[in-house]
């Protein structure tokens, strides 16, 4: 079993490589196909900057080379573990990303955890007592959740919890310039900062996951083997938790894993509202300055994260469903 799993992971990783390669080609082409370049864009209007200077910078960053030459040198650099340097800050792109990734992951995973913890009971009760009070309330929660702009919800929550009630901080991932007396203090401070953004993102996911679990559980409850279980005289609790819920969780798990990209998209907006120093902020800022290496690096990193999430989903899925083998 363990060996099969290891083989499977290795094989899947190799399958993912061409995908990542194709993504890098597509994104690289899009970015570099744009007319103009960061230097023209940034310095072109400045009368003190001569055309020669811009030309010198273009030459220095190889922006005059044909696009495929630029791509190959970028790929070579990447394979040697270097993602290039930001045009604006001159810092290594990999450094900038590595600082941001943990923040985004922390936000996204907390949000997903909140969503799962809320969606499982809400979805189960909604399906079991179809048309009941809980079902109707969760329907309203879901409809609002899928229709609401996340950033707007974030602003409202800031207004309520941070401005009016003064309970939680408005932005950032920790208190700047604070000297902590202990590690525990530091963790506590970070948790305080995490609550609002994670709640905002988590609510949107709850809306989606609750509906999903409800419909998949309703589907399972209409199956023949549920009727068999009931006819055997099993307690309703056992029928629901052991027979129905377990089977209904399969599509739920898939949805959690496959929607990882969706979560990352959502995080871009949430990070902006709460000034959360994550990947989303990084790419938005890089877009304004046309910082090619940063845009490239961030996009590739998100693609890698999505591929990883899909891989983990497949493995979890195989654990949950004994019919699936790793072959």
């Amino acid at each position: 079993m363990i060996m099969a799993l290891k083989d499977y992971v290795v094989r899947r990783t190799f399958i993912a490589l061409p995908t990542l390669f194709a993504i890098s080609v597509i994104v690289f082409t899009i970015i570099h196909a744009a007319p103009g370049d960061p230097f023209q864009f940034f310095l072109g209007f400045n009368p003190r900057v001569s055309m020669e200077t811009i030309e010198f910078l273009r030459e220095k960053y190889h922006l005059n080379d044909p696009i495929w030459v630029q791509y190959i040198s970028w790929l070579k650099m990447l394979l040697s573990g270097n993602m290039g340097y930001s045009f604006i800050t001159h810092r290594a792109v990999s450094d900038a990303i590595m600082i941001r990734v943990p923040n985004t992951v922390k936000l996204v995973l907390t949000a997903e955890l909140i969503a799962i913890l809320l969606a499982i009971p809400l979805g189960t009760i909604s399906a079991v007592k179809e048309g009941g009070i809980v079902d109707n309330i969760s329907r309203v929660i879901s409809l609002l959740g899928v229709s609401m702009p996340s950033f707007w919800l974030g602003i409202l929550l800031i207004l309520l919890f941070a401005v009016r009630l003064n309970l939680l901080p408005t932005c950032g991932s920790h208190t700047t310039g604070m000297v902590y007396s202990s590690t525990w203090e530091s963790i506590k401070d970070q948790i305080y900062h995490l609550i609002l953004p994670a709640m905002t993102l988590g609510y949107l996911r709850t809306a989606y996951l609750t509906r999903l679990l409800r419909s998949s559980l309703l589907d399972v409850l209409s199956k023949d083997y549920i009727m068999t279980a009931r006819m055997k005289g099993l307690k309703e609790r056992v029928v629901i938790y052991k027979h129905a819920l377990r089977n209904a969780l399969l599509p739920f798990v898939t949805a959690i894993g496959l929607a990882f990209g969706f979560l990352l998209s959502g995080a871009v907006l949430i990070e902006t509202v709460f000034a959360w120093p994550g990947m989303g902020r990084l790419i938005v800022d890089a877009t304004f300055t046309r910082d090619y290496p940063v845009i490239m690096g961030t996009t590739m990193m998100t693609a890698v994260m999505v591929v990883l999430a899909n891989l983990i989903t497949d493995i979890v899925y195989a654990f949950l469903d004994p019919r699936i083998t790793y072959d």
């Binding site: 899009i30 890089a286 877009t287």
Partner: peptide
């Protein structure tokens, strides 16, 4: 595989 909003942002950066 590329999160949609990231892809849109890449397009807009053109």
């Amino acid at each position: 595989t590329i999160p949609t909003l990231f892809l849109i942002i890449v397009f807009l950066s053109m």
